[in-house]
Design a protein around this nucleic acid. Structure first.
Lengths: 139, 139
DNA sequence: CCTATATTTGCAATTCGGTTGCAATCAAGG
DNA sequence: CCTTGATTGCAACCGAATTGCAAATATAGG
């Protein structure tokens, strides 16, 4: 009854359930690329689709994971680095989408550059997605 | 039989139909913000959903409009500036989404800054979306 | 350890964005 | 004006996501 997943859930005031532990474990096992709902559904067959959606929402609200803007109409999620908590995300890094393997990953060390807004515009958040060929697909 | 819409369609080797002229006119009337499929469907009630989808595809392929990455699962489109043609888009500008009126617009004069990729990654395209409050909503 | 309560889960149904196949209609060129 | 190839409208379908509700379960209190 003491696992990394249990710690994380308790630290975030989420009740500890099998579903949540399984999904969280998936993220912990995941090396680089982000997970889509469909990926989780496939890995954890038997778990209800809706439960997965709700768990992802709960994790995102608590700042355990963050969602990644994907223009293909399927949300992606990845673990947050330290510095994220309830609602306040610090995911100011660039995301990368590989055009070959179509994996999405966080470039944690590349942060979104500042851009000057035109007169009258107030920038609050900036997101940047670079697409190309990832290191795995190039080697 | 000589309208701006007819010119544009002919110039792009698209046959001139009422549907295409109406949709194109909508874009020409549109001042700043981008259009979603639903917006067009609402404005041009009576036109089939599928026709709108196919027209948007055709326009995008010809470089008349470009699609804007929207993380909410609904594609947005805006007229291209000069320099876009068959498939080759030059939409290297930043897009802005207002959190109040939720309009999306092109910041044609703000172009996406260069970012250095980590070793092994090859960047091909970069997209940037800034969210905040637009000039209209602030005044 | 056991119970009460609040939370979570699973299921069914629904919404929404988008695509596909096909028959009918229409634009373009001769 | 007529042929032909492109376009439209319709129905059906698909995947992603949400909602309401009843059953199951985690947590806190005794």
């Amino acid at each position: 009854m003491s696992d990394a997943t249990v710690d994380i859930l308790k630290r975030n005031n989420l009740s500890v359930t099998d579903s949540r532990r399984s999904i969280l474990q998936l993220f912990l096992n995941q090396e680089a690329s982000a997970l889509r709902h469909a990926d989780i559904e496939h890995s954890l067959q038997g778990m209800d689709r809706v439960t997965i959606y709700r768990t992802l929402q709960a994790f995102a609200e608590k700042g355990i994971i963050h969602s990644i803007p994907g223009s293909d109409g399927a949300a992606r999620y990845a673990l947050c680095r330290s510095g994220c908590a309830d609602g306040h995300h610090h995911d100011d890094h660039v995301h990368f989408v590989c055009t070959r393997c179509s994996a999405t990953q966080c470039l944690d060390d590349v942060h979104v550059p500042f851009v000057r807004m035109p007169e009258g515009f107030e920038a609050i958040k900036a997101e940047m997605v670079v697409s190309g060929v990832c290191s795995k697909c190039r080697s």
